[in-house]
Design a binder for these strands. Sequence first.
DNA 1: GGGCCGATTGTT
DNA 2: ACAATCGGCCCG
Length: 199
Amino acid sequence: MLNCLIVNDLIVTQPREFYSRPTLEVARDLLGAPLLRRLSNGEILTGRILEVEAYTHDDPACHAFRGKTERCKIMFGPAGYVYVYFIYGMYWCLNVVTEQEGVAGAVLIRAVDTPHGNGPGKLCRVWDINRQQYGLDLCDSNSEIYIARSEPLPDREVEVSTRIGLKDAQDRVWRFFVKNHGGVSGLKRSSAPRIVHPK
DNA sequence: GGGCCGATTGTT
DNA sequence: ACAATCGGCCCG
């Protein structure tokens, strides 16, 4: 694994302060970070994060928009924990909790640089991520899922667009992905999000 | 308890 | 363009 911070053979995770920031900043800085998943048989899967979307408490598309429920309660707690939800009767989606404790926010992991890791539902299917991983601490390298500390990608490698698959709040340019990388999701879809180029 | 709907995906 | 498939959420 390239570009992980490794001290005494231990992979150093992103500290909690990395996640306890505005959701949009965390989302953008997660690009390029190595995501690690330790399976029950001890095997470790790794992949760089290629595509993310931000969801905030004042965002109609956010599960926490209408307040705390059994499903989204983790989003109101401290940052750096795993939020997973079930969607369309078939798929699980992996998120990381953001913001200060008491403020709901999360970043959806939409793609990683690994085989069949393009798309949030496919990633969780291939990496065996489901409700059992709800609430895992990403800041603990003993967790089944954690994220290694790494330098953020330079702006020239980052592209932004509107989010995918939403009915509400389609105007927000809150999707971040690695530019010119074939591993991002939705490349063959006609309902492509609106890509916004820097001036 | 009922009914609607969804942060997806693969196929037509 | 549409089906698959079912838990969460809101309402009453």
